[in-house]
Simulated scan of single mutants.
Amino acid sequence: MAKGKRAAGAKGTKITLKMAKNALRATPEGKLRLDLSNVGIATFPKCLLKLRNVEELDLSRNKLKTIPEFIGQFTGLRWLDLHSNQIERLPENIGLLRSLVHLNLCNNNLDSAGLSPEIGSLRNLQVLNLGMNRLNALPPTLAGLTNLTELGLFDNLFTQVPECTRVLPNLTKLNTKRNPVVYRQRDGQDSDSMKTTGNLYLAREGDLCHPCLERCRKKKLDSLQKKSNFSGLISPNSVARGSQEIWRQWITTSPPGFHKEQARPAGDTNKTTFTHNDNTL
């Protein structure tokens, strides 16, 4: 019996069509949103094809390793959140999601070979988060993302700022923090300069590892002592905006020896803490 339970656990939570329908809700903007985050899914539920008219899909904080080719049938999808899974490769049909405006792939196992060149076909994409992966290069096709305004490349393996980012006409925020980036000087100026931001966002204490929680508490105490004005609390960052009631990004600046698995959520609590992070776009 115990062996059977372990096997079932390895397969992850089975999502039925009824469960998926119960997870549907309308956003304040009137969009149809399907939230299946943090439910232990290990394989992309095929039953979701019955709900491919959704405009927002949240499968973050699960155990997904692959995304099937039939993801391309969600042609009306505008917002897709896959952060904090174990995804190693994107399917070619990701390029069929032509309506996509927001794509979050942060905190996965993507390397440059697994980042499909077809991602460059998402011409309406405005926000792309590729932080906390194993990328050291971007496909040249990303130069086709002419509507992209925010790009997160933090906590990867880049040794130089990707050339394709230099030709994106509407890019205003580029985060390459904590990469082994080598900056070049040209005409006395930093040719690889970029606009990065550090914002305030909401996170549940139960979603943070102990080192991160202690760091957040210390920063909160220091900030209160300085009587800082936390104006950012009324305007969460672009990653948090889609789902304020739950966390969007759970990691603060990584301390030495930090591993992603240490920070994976052990459960939700009702207590909320304010934390500062530069893992924003």
Rank of each mutant, 00 (worst) to 15 (best):
A2H: 14
K3L: 12
K5C: 04
A7I: 09
A7G: 00
K14P: 00
K18S: 13
N22S: 14
L24C: 10
A26K: 12
T27K: 01
P28S: 00
P28V: 00
E29D: 15
L32V: 10
L32E: 07
N38A: 11
V39G: 01
I41R: 02
A42I: 01
P45C: 03
P45K: 00
K46Y: 02
K46P: 04
L49T: 11
L51S: 03
R52K: 15
E55F: 01
L57T: 11
S60D: 08
N62M: 10
K63W: 01
K65R: 15
T66I: 09
P68S: 06
I71F: 05
G72D: 04
G76I: 00
W79R: 12
L80E: 04
L80T: 04
D81L: 01
L82D: 09
S84M: 06
S84R: 03
R89G: 04
E92A: 14
N93S: 14
L96C: 10
R98S: 14
S99A: 15
L100V: 05
V101P: 01
H102M: 09
N104F: 07
C106Y: 04
C106L: 07
C106V: 07
D111I: 00
S112R: 06
L115W: 05
L115K: 04
S116T: 15
R123M: 08
N124I: 08
M132C: 13
N136P: 06
N136A: 10
P139I: 02
P140H: 06
L142Y: 11
G144Y: 10
G144C: 13
L145G: 13
T146A: 11
L148P: 03
L148I: 03
T149N: 10
E150P: 03
L151F: 10
L153G: 02
N156A: 10
V161D: 02
E163P: 00
T165F: 01
V167D: 05
N170Y: 09
N175Q: 12
N175I: 10
V181S: 06
Y183M: 13
Y183L: 14
Q185R: 14
G188Y: 10
Q189D: 10
D192M: 13
D192K: 08
S193F: 08
K195V: 13
T196R: 04
L200W: 08
Y201H: 09
A203M: 07
E205I: 12
G206N: 12
L208A: 15
L208C: 15
C209W: 10
C212Y: 03
R215H: 02
K220I: 13
L221D: 13
K226M: 09
K226H: 07
S228I: 05
F230N: 12
F230A: 05
L233P: 11
S235I: 14
P236M: 04
V239D: 05
V239K: 03
Q249E: 13
T253Y: 02
S254R: 14
P255C: 15
P256T: 06
F258E: 12
H259R: 11
R264Q: 11
R264D: 08
R264M: 11
P265C: 07
A266K: 07
D268S: 05
T272Q: 04
D278F: 05
T280M: 12
